[in-house]
Simulated assay, not measured.
Amino acid sequence: MDKKEKEISKFISLILRHKPEVIGISLDEHGWADVSELIKGIDKTHKLDMEILEKIVSEDEKQRYSFNDDKTLIRANQGHSINVDVELKNASPPEILWHGTGEKYVASILDHGLIPKSRLYVHLSKDYDTAVKVGSRHGKPVVFKIYAGRMAEGGYEFFISENGVWLAKYIPKEFIEVYEPAVSQRLNKKKVVKNP
């Protein structure tokens, strides 16, 4: 994707995850938007046609979007702040998942666990490197090791989105550990407790 297409992709993300009303469309209960309405609404401010939209969907590095079978509908795979059911698959997680965030949120997470805040779910990565990238968007990154297998054994549900992001409604603090040793040492000096 070129710079302009990345800009359009971010705008599509805003519409399909948070604010469809910005371009005067609505989503159905499963988060689907009519493709022709989406194109028409976006084309008022950003040049968009079906060819560009297909390119954005196929080349998005995070695979944020999906078409239905005949490409008449489109939706974001996860990350919604509006209440939609994107028909997530309930799945058994691996033993360990990862969560990246900014350092400023660490104390709160270790006190209260991970909550979705403005989103519907807590987003978890299947690998450490992805969590670092996600955390970098929020300042100095901190990565949490999530004991997902133990959580699942305790009855907590996990879901996996179309693009492979693991999701949960809530991660209690007893299943969270700050992963980087240097960060752990620095935080322990501030009376933050790890939960192995």
Rank of each mutant, 00 (worst) to 15 (best):
A33F: 08
A33E: 10
A33K: 12
A33W: 07
S36L: 05
E37V: 01
L38Y: 00
L38E: 00
G41V: 06
G41Y: 06
D43Q: 10
K44G: 00
K47L: 06
E51V: 01
I52D: 01
L53V: 00
E54C: 02
K55V: 03
K55A: 13
V57Y: 12
V57M: 10
V57G: 11
S58L: 12
E59R: 14
E59P: 07
E59G: 06
D60R: 08
D60Q: 06
E61Y: 14
K62V: 01
K62I: 05
K62H: 06
Q63T: 07
R64Q: 13
R64L: 15
S66G: 01
D69T: 11
D69H: 12
T72K: 05
T72R: 04
L73E: 15
L73P: 02
I74D: 01
R75E: 05
R75M: 02
A76E: 13
A76H: 07
Q78R: 04
G79I: 09
G79H: 05
H80Q: 13
H80I: 09
H80R: 04
S81V: 15
N83C: 05
V84D: 12
D85H: 09
D85N: 15
V86F: 02
V86P: 04
L88P: 09
L88G: 03
L88D: 06
K89G: 01
A91N: 01
P93H: 09
P94A: 04
E95W: 01
E95P: 04
